[in-house]
Design a protein around this nucleic acid. Sequence first.
DNA 1: TTCGGGCTTTCGGCCTGCCTAAATCTCGGC
DNA 2: GCCGAGATTTAGGCAGGCCGAAAGCCCGAA
Lengths: 213, 213
Amino acid sequence: MSTTPAVEDYLKTIYAHTEWQPEPITPSVLAARLGVAPSSVTEMVKKLAGAGLITHVPYGPLRLTPAGFLGASAVVRRHRLVETWLVREMGYDWDQVHDEAEILEHALSDRLLEAIDVRLGRPGSDPHGDLIPAADGSLVRVPAIRLADAAPGHAGTVLRISDRDPAILRDLAADSIGPGSALTVLESCAVRLPGGSIRLLAPDAAASIWLTK
Amino acid sequence: MSTTPAVEDYLKTIYAHTEWQPEPITPSVLAARLGVAPSSVTEMVKKLAGAGLITHVPYGPLRLTPAGFLGASAVVRRHRLVETWLVREMGYDWDQVHDEAEILEHALSDRLLEAIDVRLGRPGSDPHGDLIPAADGSLVRVPAIRLADAAPGHAGTVLRISDRDPAILRDLAADSIGPGSALTVLESCAVRLPGGSIRLLAPDAAASIWLTK
DNA sequence: TTCGGGCTTTCGGCCTGCCTAAATCTCGGC
DNA sequence: GCCGAGATTTAGGCAGGCCGAAAGCCCGAA
């Protein structure tokens, strides 16, 4: 089976789902994430399973096989390296890179990717704080906790901010909150910044931020 | 009509055909250039004509409308800026950039293109010597003559080398002939370089090289 | 234990872009 | 003026990805 942009998007989305929590993804969630109808997912799932990229029992959740994990890692690696490049060299802000990377991730050759990786000094994480898989799919895990799940009083620095919703990224950037920011959690939706100022976060935003443990 | 990669490729190829000679392109030539069957061209021609991008009378040649010219210019601009960027910043040689640009030209946003253009200092020509259209489709023409058509004794510098055939580009690069090289034509397929050394060129290569008049 | 709502799958269809094979047209040579 | 080679178009099909509607499955609540 050929690895089309659609295949890459499905693999990437399945991969992303289990990156920060253990539950495998279900077809309906995958459909919602991709913005396609559930029946489209059923169809593609057959193809991916037939190609040995995912495992799937009817009516059950979806899991990447080792081969699928490798393929997904490659797409995620391309996406995150592109994001890092856009911010470091092309004048993008970290909350503006997602859509561009979404397209370029399907268009870069291995050679160009390697050239970008070298230019950037083989970065380990992207502008949102997400880890960049190595070419073999390996990455260094860091213990993290969702801000929304952190106990009041918890202090930590922002490790990553999910890039799923661009509006959240914009709002946080406007609030001067980004990867590396030090925060103290007051309650689930309020935080104190180093200067002492207090920010009230939308529940969505609080669920998108991951802090050091 | 949406502007898909296929549409962009058709427009770009029609544009390229009349860039260095005046005859409009025929469906069969277009099919050969694109590597598709003639019937596929007929089909797409209907769509492009219906969208007002080309004019076409049945069994006749194809011509870009002003709208089609603008669309084609945009694709060509993206292609050539990408080639220039790959050579100047990403360590590619000028005979290696075509295939990568062929894909990236469909993937860059206007914003990223502008950033690249600015970084490169708004170059007027790409690594093969081809002119880069401005955003409005305009470009500065330079009088040129095909090496294969030049009279013996004609001396000039290489303005451009058609990037159609990668093998030709490789061979010429190995012979140290590239855009900017000074040449004296001995006969249609032999040239003298500044050092006095003489090169015999394949007819294909001689037809791919354009010299100053 | 049964039932119903929600999730998943099946089914039939649509669109793009490509193909081959079979018309059909054009035009130069005789 | 006719004819045939070559170019173009038509017709019928295929694969990838998507859709909505309808059928099927699963599991928790009663």
